[in-house]
C-alpha cells in the first residue's frame, strides 16, 4: 500500500519534472533549429520540422560579426566581477556569520534592500558617475556596477553556508593555534567550498547575461555579448536566424563552464564531522 503510493508519487513527480524540463528546453530547441534554417523556413507557419540545414549564420556570427571580441569583453567583465564580488562577499559573510546581536540582522536586511532597487533606477546614476570619472567604455565601469548590484547576493548566499559551520570549528582552530586568517582560509573556507562554487556560478551568470548596464556603460571597446546580439541583423531578413545563432553561441561557454564545475555544484556540504 505504502510502496504503491510511493511509486505513484514518484511517477507524478517524474512527469512534472519532465514537463518542466520540456518547457524550459523548448526555446533552446527552437533557437537551435532557427539558427540552422534559411530565413524563409524560419518564418514559416506552421513551423517546419523538416528542412535543409545551413550553418551559414553560425559562420557569420563567429567569423564576420566580431563575436570573439565581444566574448572576450564578456569574459573579462564577468570573471572580474566574480573575483571581486565573491571575494568581498565571502569575507563579509564570514564576519557577519560570526557576529551576534541585532546589528547583524539590520545589516543583512539593508543589503537585501539594495537588491530591491530596479536596475533602471541605478542605470542613470551609474552612467553619470562613470562619465564623471571618465570610465565610460572601460572594463572597470562595468565591473564596479556589476559588483555593486551583485554584492548583496554573494553575501546572503555565502552567509547561509557559513552559518551552517558550527562556531566550535573556529574555536577548535583557535585552540590549535590558528589566527583568524588561518582559520578562515585553512579551515572554514574549504568547508564551504561547494557553496563558494555555486555562488561564483550564479554571480557569473548575472554578469554574463547583464544587458541594461552594458547598454549604458559599454562602447565599441567593451561591448558585451548581450548588447551585441541585440544589434545583430536588425536591418535585414536574416535577423531571426542570425540572432538565434548568436544566442546559441552565447550559451556555449556557460554550458561548458557548468559541465566543468558539475562535480563541485552537485556535491553537498561535507559536514559529517559535526553531529
Amino acid at each position: 500500500m505504502n510502496a504503491g503510493r510511493f511509486r505513484t508519487s514518484q511517477i507524478l513527480l517524474f512527469v512534472a519534472l519532465a514537463a518542466f524540463t520540456a518547457a524550459m528546453l523548448t526555446p533552446v530547441v527552437w533557437a537551435l533549429m532557427t539558427s540552422v534554417k534559411q530565413p524563409i523556413d524560419a518564418f514559416a507557419i506552421p513551423p517546419k520540422i523538416v528542412f535543409e540545414p545551413t550553418f551559414e549564420f553560425h559562420r557569420q556570427v563567429w567569423l564576420e560579426k566580431g563575436f570573439g571580441r565581444f566574448l572576450l569583453n564578456s569574459a573579462v567583465i564577468s570573471l572580474a566581477t566574480v573575483v571581486v564580488s565573491v571575494s568581498i562577499g565571502t569575507m563579509a559573510a564570514y564576519a557577519l556569520s560570526r557576529m551576534s546581536g541585532k546589528a547583524v540582522g539590520g545589516i543583512m536586511l539593508a543589503l537585501l534592500s539594495l537588491r530591491m532597487f530596479p536596475h533602471m533606477l541605478l542605470a542613470i546614476p551609474f552612467f553619470i558617475l562613470a562619465k564623471y570619472l571618465n570610465l565610460i567604455d572601460t572594463y572597470p565601469a562595468m565591473v564596479l556596477a556589476l559588483v555593486a548590484i551583485n554584492q548583496p547576493f554573494t553575501i546572503w548566499m555565502m552567509h547561509s553556508f557559513f552559518v551552517d559551520v558550527p562556531k566550535e570549528i573556529d574555536e577548535a582552530a583557535a585552540i590549535d593555534g590558528a589566527g583568524e586568517w588561518q582559520t578562515f582560509f585553512r579551515v572554514v573556507l574549504p568547508i564551504v567550498r561547494p557553496g563558494l562554487w555555486v555562488t561564483a556560478l550564479f554571480s557569473l551568470l548575472l554578469a554574463y547575461n547583464e544587458f541594461l548596464f552594458a547598454l549604458v556603460l559599454t562602447g565599441p571597446h567593451t561591448k558585451t555579448l548581450p548588447v551585441a546580439i541585440a544589434e545583430y541583423g536588425g536591418e535585414d531578413l536574416n535577423y531571426w536566424s542570425l540572432s538565434a545563432a548568436a544566442a546559441i553561441a552565447i550559451m556555449i561557454p556557460i554550458v561548458l563552464f557548468m559541465m566543468a564545475l558539475q562535480k563541485h555544484l552537485v556535491r553537498g556540504l561535507a559536514l559529517g564531522a559535526v553531529k
Binding site: 558550527p166 566550535e168 570549528i169 574555536e171 577548535a172 582552530a173 583557535a174 585552540i175 590549535d176 593555534g177 590558528a178 579551515v187 574549504p190 568547508i191 567550498r193 561535507a270 559536514l271 559529517g272 564531522a273 559535526v274 553531529k275
Partner: peptide, 20 residues
Amino acid sequence: RPPKQRDIAMVFQNYALYPH
C-alpha cells in the same frame, strides 16, 4: 592570552573535527 598561547587542548561536545 589568546587560546593558542595557553598551551591547552580542548575536546568539544560535538567533536568539532575539520570535515575536509
